[in-house]
Simulated assay, not measured.
Amino acid sequence: MSNALFAVRDLLREGATLSREEIAQRLSLPSSTVEAALEHWRSRQKLQVLQPLAAAPACSSGGCGGGACGSCGSRKPAPPATQYRWRDWSPVQ
């Protein structure tokens, strides 16, 4: 776990703003491991957590709750993911 902690830290210190899934993919780590590492750094106030804005409804008919039924040809998009950014990052020199 300690290697995962530092891998997540180092990735975010580079100035990236990423979701948990993006971090897991870039580091080839299980999502649960990344989640634990993010919680560790969040509890130490090292992360800025950026909550997504609510997505606008995809369906104009209004009868299906924003595209959930699919009858109008649109599908409700997946909600945007929470993003994480290192709080006191500075560019690597």
Rank of each mutant, 00 (worst) to 15 (best):
M1H: 10
M1K: 08
M1A: 12
S2L: 03
S2Y: 02
S2Q: 09
A4M: 01
L5Y: 11
L5H: 10
F6K: 04
V8M: 02
D10W: 00
L11K: 01
L11I: 01
L12Q: 00
L12R: 02
R13W: 02
E14D: 13
G15Q: 12
G15W: 10
T17N: 03
L18H: 08
L18S: 08
R20H: 06
R20I: 03
R20C: 12
E21G: 08
E21T: 13
I23R: 03
I23L: 08
A24P: 04
A24K: 01
Q25K: 13
R26F: 06
S28Q: 07
L29Q: 05
L29P: 01
L29E: 01
P30I: 02
P30H: 10
S31A: 10
S31F: 06
S31D: 11
S32A: 11
T33W: 02
T33I: 08
V34I: 00
V34D: 01
V34K: 00
E35K: 14
A37W: 00
L38F: 05
L38G: 02
H40M: 01
H40N: 07
W41R: 00
W41A: 01
R42E: 13
R42A: 14
R42L: 06
R42H: 13
R44E: 12
R44D: 07
Q45H: 14
Q45D: 15
Q45Y: 09
Q45G: 03
Q45V: 05
K46R: 14
K46D: 04
L47A: 03
Q48W: 09
V49Y: 06
V49T: 15
L50V: 14
L50I: 15
L50E: 08
Q51E: 15
Q51H: 14
P52V: 12
L53R: 15
L53W: 10
L53P: 04
A54R: 15
A54T: 12
A54V: 13
A56V: 10
C59G: 05
G62F: 04
G63Q: 14
G66T: 08
G66R: 06
G66S: 09
G67P: 04
G67W: 07
C69M: 05
G70S: 08
G70A: 09
C72K: 06
S74L: 14
S74D: 09
R75C: 08
R75G: 06
R75E: 15
K76A: 14
P77I: 11
A78D: 12
A78F: 07
A78Y: 07
P79F: 04
P80D: 14
A81L: 14
A81F: 09
T82K: 10
T82N: 07
Q83S: 09
Y84N: 03
R87L: 09
W89Q: 10
W89T: 03
P91K: 12
V92M: 13
V92T: 15
Q93L: 12
Q93Y: 09
